[in-house]
């Protein structure tokens, strides 16, 4: 598995897209910090970008890589290697290279502008950690979809729809439900609904870390009581981890049964 991981990783590291992705984050970080010297403001702006972009790029890269390397995968399958090793190796290769682009691309400008002297250091690292998590989650989901759909176009379409669902549609349904049932106490519902969407969960985790959490008012207090404790933090990171692990198990199961 390590060999395949290494191969996929270096294959991607050599590819143009990784560089573009890396350079995008690098320039984004520098421009943000150039425009406002305030590191904490830059962290808030980054939050919006990371929450939208890392899942999107993860999904697209994941599905693209799978379809493009289908012939090579077929070649590997002919070798005496465990199927799960092949797919997990590829998955880790992509996720790690994307995460590396993210962490280095944002890390370098923030280091240059002195994140270590800032009080936001912890928030910034939470943000990077969450970005990495989201990358892993959405690459795993993309792999699942790619394994289900042999048709490239269909696979692409469904993958983008998945991203759209988690990034936009889910919140829409969530909002409508809250408006319809606003006669009932909704705090626990809101808490539950955020847990089932990794993007929402990440967003709330970061918002509670930043001082805009005061805007959340009474509801925010309920959230703070839950996520603010160390139990809540561990619980929510555990949930994000679960969001990685479950699709991975599904990859393993599906690849074992699939007829290539």
């Amino acid at each position: 598995m390590l060999k395949i991981l290494k191969y996929s990783f270096f294959d991607l590291m050599r590819s143009r897209w990784s560089y573009i992705y890396f350079l995008f984050y690098l320039s984004l970080g520098f421009i943000l910090l150039f425009l406002n010297q305030d590191v904490s403001k830059a962290v808030i702006t980054l939050l919006n970008i990371i929450l939208v972009l890392t899942p999107l790029i993860g999904t697209l890269f994941g599905i693209m890589y799978y379809y493009n390397s289908r012939e090579f995968t077929a070649l590997l399958l002919a070798q005496p290697i465990k199927r799960s090793n092949i797919f997990l190796g590829q998955f880790l290769g992509i996720s790690l290279s994307l995460s590396l682009s993210l962490v280095l691309g944002l890390g370098i400008p923030f280091l240059a502008y002195g994140i270590f002297q800032s009080t936001e250091i912890f928030d910034f690292f939470t943000l990077l950690l969450i970005g990495t998590m989201l990358t892993f989650i959405f690459v795993a989901l993309a792999f699942n979809l790619a394994l289900i759909f042999d048709d490239k176009i269909k696979g692409f379409g469904i993958a983008i729809l998945t991203w759209l669902f988690f990034a936009v549609i889910y919140d829409g349904i969530f909002l409508i439900l809250m408006l319809v049932f606003d006669d009932y106490p909704l705090d626990n519902f809101a808490l539950g609904a955020t847990i089932f969407n990794p993007i929402d969960l990440s967003r709330i985790l970061i918002i509670l870390k930043l001082d805009i959490s005061a805007l959340l008012g009474y509801t925010g207090a309920v959230f703070q009581n839950f996520f603010g404790t160390s139990f809540g933090m561990i619980f929510s990171f555990g949930l994000l981890l679960l969001w990685v692990v479950i699709p991975l198990i599904m990859i393993v199961v599906k690849s074992r049964k699939k007829d290539f």
Partner: peptide, 20 residues
Amino acid sequence: YIVNRTPETIVLLRSLFVDI
């Protein structure tokens, strides 16, 4: 306006859907 009507919806602050 929505937040005034249903304060709990504030948890969607800074989500992409809200921007849209």
